[in-house]
């Protein structure tokens, strides 16, 4: 591809993103370009269209396609007790601090289908803190939130999750937390009672509460540097002093302007305490 063609492709992508933002309000303009481009090309190929401009036309003139396209752009993979060391450290280092609060507000930003929120609920229940906790689990994507509210997950995943749960310091039998039903694992009723699943867009929506803990894991890897920094500003503003920020295992507060405002709770684990 020569530089003229590359220039044209960049322009087409820019126009596509501008079009869905201006016409539908979905703002993907500051997502990480390399992986976003891959997903756009894949969506284009799946539609059997030869140009990105053709995809833009389909989007603008066929509103039914929008949902499918937004799904194609999003990556919702998640799991329970993902990166178990994170949850182990949470149990050991964050829980003691949470005990000092009469009520605990947690924001799980970019919660996808809810596995992370349920993991937090299980951990806090075992530590005797769940009754005074409220977890706000938010995502841009209404489809995944629907699934999250149902609290039904593929039974076949439970084997992995059980292993994660044990590595995360869980001492019960993980099967106490769900009932198996025709290939589904239905989370125990009550586990979700203090979780509120709601739509919130980290790009366009502002702060909505003050939290003792915010987990925003594997979400800003999909944003470009500038947007990631903006989101970190929002997270920072939404945390109480000495509040805890949890990130994905390959994300770090370094390389963001907020670097000096946090201290790491434990070496090599992406848990940070707001200190200034």
């Amino acid at each position: 591809m020569d530089s003229r063609q590359q220039e044209r492709e960049n322009l087409e992508i820019e126009l596509l993103l501008e079009a869905i933002f201006r016409y539908y309000g979905f703002d993907f303009r500051d997502y990480a370009p390399a992986s976003l481009r891959r997903r756009i090309i894949k969506a284009r190929d799946q539609e059997g269209i030869s140009t990105i401009t053709g995809l833009t036309e389909r989007l603008l003139h066929n509103p039914n396609y929008l949902d499918r396209f937004v799904q194609a752009l999003s990556v919702n993979v998640t799991s329970m007790f993902r990166d178990p060391e994170f949850f182990l450290t949470f149990r050991k280092k964050v829980v003691p601090m949470l005990r000092t609060y009469p009520s605990i507000q947690i924001w799980n930003a970019g919660c996808s289908t809810g596995e992370e929120a349920y993991s937090l609920a299980i951990l806090l229940e075992e530590e005797g803190l769940y009754a005074r906790t409220r977890i706000y689990a938010t995502d841009i994507n209404e489809e995944v939130l629907k699934k999250a509210r149902e609290g039904i997950f593929p039974l076949e995943d439970m084997k992995d999750y059980t292993a994660n749960y044990m590595k995360a310091g869980g001492e019960k039998s993980f099967s106490e937390y769900y009932s198996a039903n025709y290939g589904n694992a239905i989370m125990r009723p009550g586990l979700g009672k203090n979780i509120t699943f709601a739509q919130h867009n980290l790009v366009t929506d502002g702060p909505f509460n003050q939290f003792q803990v915010i987990c925003c894991r594997n979400v800003t890897i999909y944003f470009n540097k500038e947007l990631k920094n903006r989101v970190h500003e929002l997270l920072y503003q939404s945390l109480v002093n000495f509040g805890i920020l949890g990130l994905g295992s390959k994300e770090s507060i370094h390389f963001t302007p907020k670097q000096g405002r946090y201290e790491q709770v434990e070496n090599t684990i992406s848990l940070y305490r707001k200190i200034g």
Binding site: S35, V75, N218, I221
Partner: peptide, 20 residues
């Protein structure tokens, strides 16, 4: 590249992804 992530290059910095 760390295990279980795609490693992508942007101008000047890395981006990770958990696309399939």
């Amino acid at each position: 590249a760390p295990p279980n992530y795609h490693l992508l290059v942007e101008k000047g910095y890395f981006a990770l992804s958990i696309d399939p």
